[in-house]
Structures are given as structure tokens and as C-alpha cells.
Design a protein around this nucleic acid. Structure first.
Lengths: 228, 228
DNA sequence: GCAAAAGTGTTTGATATACACCCATGC
DNA sequence: GCATGGGTGTATATCAAACACTTTTGC
């Protein structure tokens, strides 16, 4: 069994890709999870949609590589970027003839306003995360895995703010939770939960112009390790 | 900034390493977390202790590579093996002259009886996980990271059984928790906690030969995805 | 006033913890 | 009997969920 080393002369290529999530209003006006994808311009899977990514540069760190390819292909600057998983099955590139690629995949979150600034053209497009077409490689599974991580991390960390701009109402924050988790939350209990964690503080301002009682505006508290 | 690609001709080497944990009785007779390390026989860090690992074979999956190098160097067959993290900082190999290595690190758990079968010689040795010497590369940080993951995973999964043989008493299972978490647990509450999760079932047997009331023997319930 | 969402209070049930106490064995 | 851990019962604190209710705006 140990002779697997013998064939290791042709070392696998190393690439870094990123799953990006933003919350965008859908046709009903509700927030919905969206992810930008890029069209492949080369075999294998030429013409199909795929995660943005590329080969790892010799003098860049893994996270830097993710941030760079993300900026180059989509124009986005994420507010949160974290390693997701390394995918390296021998057969994931599809055909036997294709070169073997090990992908270290990151996941990123961008605020709604930043998402609007993204490049969009024939080869870069936003998709709803739960209505993806058949993607290149094993990228459908990778997005699903990232979705699970996002939902999980939302519950024990403060990443939800990252989807919003600097100040926000608790209703907006709750909308983020509801969109990501896919279920409604009790406004009263949600308020208490957020207040108990101490992740937000009042700005002193209120949001005017609604046709109801004006809600308080909040900002994320600045603690060391903000997006952990 | 995008010209980082220009220098990517010399692609980084890809290696797979593994952090292995077992529980072994220490001088006091208490279980303590131990990890086997191998001595490096090449620069950089020649002579220093390091995680077992090696280059990824062209035709093996990432987890297979981890299992293989682990078996080759230590003789161990782990009952649990999971990807930990990919480490790829440009400067992690130490010297500027050293070749760049990206390591995909796995972590593994072995049962106590399996741990005794491990190879031990001048170049392979067990260390207590909380009393490690200065290791090669960034391997000290990697072990710490793995320790955190183990402690975390112990609380929401059923991996604790993996340290024990097929049948065990609840006191033995509690000892595992206490050794990993580093604090004592109330026997009564622990029993209820385990019973509530439904991860164990009675064998019907009892363990004789103790100098007190003979405790019931349990085994792990066999569910799909046993070690998740 | 009415609609609508903001924001508060209260009740209930589930769960974690502390700790008292009985049980069954070896010696 | 006595020591020792096995095993059970119970009171208390903490927290999440459900939901009723009051407040403040626009119209």
C-alpha cells in the first residue's frame, strides 16, 4: 500500500476558490441568500458556472489568494472571509484525462451595498443559493456545505452584522437571521437574545420615515476579533 | 496586485499531515491526552519532532493519504479521521530559502489498546499533548488547534467512545470526558446526560472484580454516521 | 381612530447543576 | 461492618419559547 508514493511525481495542482454569500431582495421584497458565480472559459466544464477561484500564487497566503481572485473576478471586497474545507478527491475533476486539482475553498460574506457594486456581465452573475444550476466540478456540494456552515455559525457568532451596513434596526438584523435560517423568529425573543449577547449597542438615533413607531438604530459593538 | 499570478510558476508543494490523539494512563494512573510524533530526518528542522505526514500521492484522496502516512510512520489505524485545516502561510517553513509547503492537516483518534500497538523507537515517540517540546514548522499551533476541535466536538458528538474498546462502563466514558475537558464531572449528571443522548446501550453484562458494586457494561449504539 | 410594527412583561417548559442518599460488591 | 464507587432522586437556577399587551408613529 505504501507504494502510493511512487506515483507522486506528478504533484496535484493547488487552487483556491471561494463561496460568496450576500443577502439580496427577491421579487417579493424579502431578503434571500445569493451567491455570485463565474462562467468557465476552459475545459473541463467549459461554459458551466463555477465558484470564483484560481491557482495559488507562489508568494501569497491562502486567504490572500481567495481575496484576490474574488476581487479580480467579481470586484467584491468581503467583510468576512474564512477557510471552509479542502476538497481533493481523485475523481472530482470529472474525466480521467483531466489534471488533478486540490481546491482549498474559502467562504465569504459581503454586505448588501457591497453586493450591488459587484461586476455583472455575461460571465459573472448572481444566483439564488437555493436555486443553483448544475455547477462545474463538485461545486454544488461545496455551496451546500458552505450554507450549512453559515447557518451554524450564525447561531454562535456575530457574523450576521456583516450582511448589514454600519447602523441597522433590530428588525433588519432579525430579517437577516430569518433569511439565512429560513424560518420566522419571534420579534420579542429575538430582541432579548441579541441584547443578552451584547453584540450590538444603541446609536441613540432612530430610523424615521416608516409608517409606524420609529425603531432605534444600532451598531455592532467593536470587540477584539469582531467577526469570529 | 493581480500580478501575483505572474510568479505562480513554481507551484507550492502539497503535503498531508495528521494530529493523532489517544488517552494513555500517566504516572498517577489517570488518563491523559497523548500524541505520537516523528523525528524529522531532513532539513528544515532536522532532528526536531513533527507531525507524521508526507507528500500527497497523485492517485490518493486526502484522507487516504493521511491514513497511509499514519500507518507507515506510526503503525496506527485510527478509528476516527477528519480534516482539521489547511495551513499555507508563505513563511511557515521557517527560512526564506526553504521550499514552500501547503499542509492539509487531518486529526485522528485511536483507542487505548490500538495506541499500545504503535511503533515506538528513536524516531517515533508518544508525548503528552499539554507538554510538547518545540516542534518543527508551526506544528505546536496546529496541535493546539486540534485540541480545541477535540474538546469542542466531544460536547456535541459521540466521538468519546472512539477512545474506548467495544464495551465500557459509564465511569470509563466519564474518565474520557474528564481527561479531554480537563475537569471533573458529576457522576450522576453525567449518567443522565449520556442516557438522554441515546448514544449508548446496555450490553446486559456487568464488570466484575472491582471492589465495589459491579457497574453495567455499555456499548455505543450503532447509528448511521457513527463517529460524526 | 386605525393599522402596523416597536418594544415590554409574563408564563411555561426544558435543561443544567448541585448535592443528598441508597445500593451492591470486596475485603 | 466498612469503604468505595455505582446508581437514583430531588431541589434549584437558568434559559428558550410562546404569547399577551402597551407604545408610537403614519395615514
Amino acid at each position: 500500500m505504501s507504494n502510493a508514493l511512487a506515483s507522486s511525481i506528478e504533484t496535484p495542482t493547488l487552487a483556491v476558490s471561494t463561496v460568496i454569500f450576500a443577502l439580496r431582495p427577491n421579487a417579493d421584497g424579502c431578503l434571500q441568500l445569493a451567491t455570485p458565480l463565474v462562467r468557465r472559459i476552459r475545459a473541463p466544464f467549459e461554459g458551466q458556472w463555477a465558484l470564483p477561484g484560481g491557482p495559488l500564487g507562489a508568494d501569497e497566503d491562502l486567504a490572500s489568494s481567495a481575496a484576490r481572485t474574488l476581487r479580480d473576478t467579481t470586484g467584491l471586497e468581503p467583510r468576512f472571509l474564512e477557510q471552509l474545507y479542502a476538497f481533493g478527491s481523485v475523481d472530482r475533476a470529472g474525466g480521467k484525462l483531466a489534471e488533478r486539482v486540490v481546491s482549498i475553498v474559502y467562504w465569504a460574506l459581503v454586505a448588501a451595498d457591497e453586493a450591488d457594486r459587484a461586476i455583472q456581465n455575461d460571465n459573472v452573475r448572481w444566483f439564488w443559493a437555493d436555486e443553483l444550476p448544475a455547477l462545474a466540478f463538485d461545486h454544488n456540494q461545496i455551496v451546500d456545505y458552505a450554507l450549512g456552515r453559515l447557518r451554524n455559525k450564525l447561531e454562535y457568532s456575530r457574523i450576521a452584522h456583516v450582511f448589514l451596513s454600519e447602523t441597522f434596526t433590530l428588525a433588519m438584523l432579525r430579517e437577516v437571521y430569518e433569511a439565512v435560517l429560513g424560518r420566522e423568529l419571534d420579534p420579542g425573543n429575538f430582541r432579548r437574545m441579541v441584547e443578552a449577547t451584547g453584540t450590538v449597542e444603541e446609536t441613540g438615533e432612530r430610523l424615521a420615515g416608516t409608517r409606524h413607531r420609529p425603531p432605534k438604530l444600532y451598531r455592532a459593538t467593536t470587540t477584539a476579533g469582531e467577526t469570529k
